[in-house]
């Protein structure tokens, strides 16, 4: 087993038993309190210059995603062009943080974004189910990295997690982290399949202990994806983790965030929970595709005073 990064919590991961004891020793989540807090923070009114700032920040945080069986090189190139230059009518529009594609499209995506600074993220490890042998998963990761992926989005083995086999989950993340090399690793928990908030908290800590650079809510392929509540919970986890270990971990809600209003609510959660350090696309991302168009329409509204419409943004 590869060695875990040395920090105050290293002891927790020495054996299955210590890991279990640590995870079950985490405080239980107050479900009602969490949801009330998340919805209360969603009522903030963000207007005028603050709104303009939030919209630009949100655009710069998007992992522009296409994860369909029907993805073609042409579609990936179009996505790359859009990530680099989201609104051709306004060159002042920030670039998105990354494009997110399947491993076999990484080379195409890499070519499309060129040296613009937009990163290429690739899902791997038998995304979205994660039901494959570890060797297959690692092969998936190595191929993506070899093709030039800057970031790897892996899925955890939810079956092992739900069966209580935390060490397997932990070791798989460690192994993928090693296989990722220089690429930053995002660990997807698929919160919609973890059933309880307590489980989401435990999964967050496993991911962070195993060396994740980002923890990510979901694949976007199941019924329940990112919600304010589960994102708030994960933001609390990264905040607490940094307090205890000094290591900062990013958060990426993905799936179901479609409007500017939603995105701004998430930014409020970030600011109020994790703090300003996370208000940067190095530490917070949105996994989204249709969100970008809504942000662009809002941006046009702020610039011109007229409500915009879907005829004035690209179809993707």
């Amino acid at each position: 087993m590869p060695t875990a990064p040395a920090h105050a919590l290293t002891d927790a991961t020495t054996s299955d038993r210590t890991l279990r004891r640590f995870l079950h020793g985490l405080p239980g989540v107050d479900t009602v309190g969490l949801e009330a807090r998340a919805s209360a923070l969603g009522t903030r009114s963000i207007k005028t210059t603050a709104k303009a700032y939030a919209i630009d920040l949100a655009i710069s945080m998007i992992d522009l995603t296409t994860l369909e069986g029907a993805d073609t090189p042409g579609k990936v190139r179009a996505l790359g062009a859009k990530a680099v230059n989201p609104d051709p009518t306004d060159r002042g529009t920030p670039k998105t943080a990354a494009v997110c594609v399947y491993p076999d499209m990484v080379a195409t995506a890499k070519e499309a974004v060129g040296d613009s600074g937009v990163k290429v993220a690739s899902v791997a490890t038998a995304f979205p189910a994660g039901r494959a042998a570890i060797d297959v998963k690692l092969g998936d990761v190595r191929e993506a990295v070899a093709a030039g992926a800057d970031e790897i989005d892996m899925v955890i083995d939810r079956g092992a997690f739900l069966a209580g086999d935390y060490m397997t989950v932990f070791e798989q993340i460690r192994a993928v982290k090693e296989a990722s090399g220089e690429a930053r690793l995002k660990v997807i928990f698929e919160t919609g399949e973890l059933s309880t908030y307590d489980n989401i908290r435990r999964a967050s800590w496993i991911g962070m202990l195993a060396g994740a650079d980002f923890i990510k809510t979901s694949t976007g392929k199941v019924g329940v994806n990112a919600t304010p509540a589960n994102t708030l919970l994960m933001l609390e986890a990264v905040r607490d983790f940094r307090e205890q270990t000094g290591v900062q971990v990013g958060v990426k809600p993905a799936g179901g965030i479609r409007t500017s209003k939603d995105a701004i609510k998430f930014l409020v959660l970030v600011n109020e929970t994790a703090g300003q350090d996370w208000l940067d696309n190095h530490w917070f991302r949105f996994g989204a595709s249709s969100l970008l168009n809504d942000l662009l329409m809002q941006r046009q509204k702020l610039a011109t005073g007229r409500y915009s419409g879907p005829d004035y943004v690209t179809v993707d």
Binding site: G305, R306, Y307, S308, G309, P310
Partner: peptide, 9 residues
């Protein structure tokens, strides 16, 4: 006024 200037009307 906002409906008259609305780009999607």
């Amino acid at each position: 006024p906002s409906l008259a200037s609305h780009q999607d009307v």
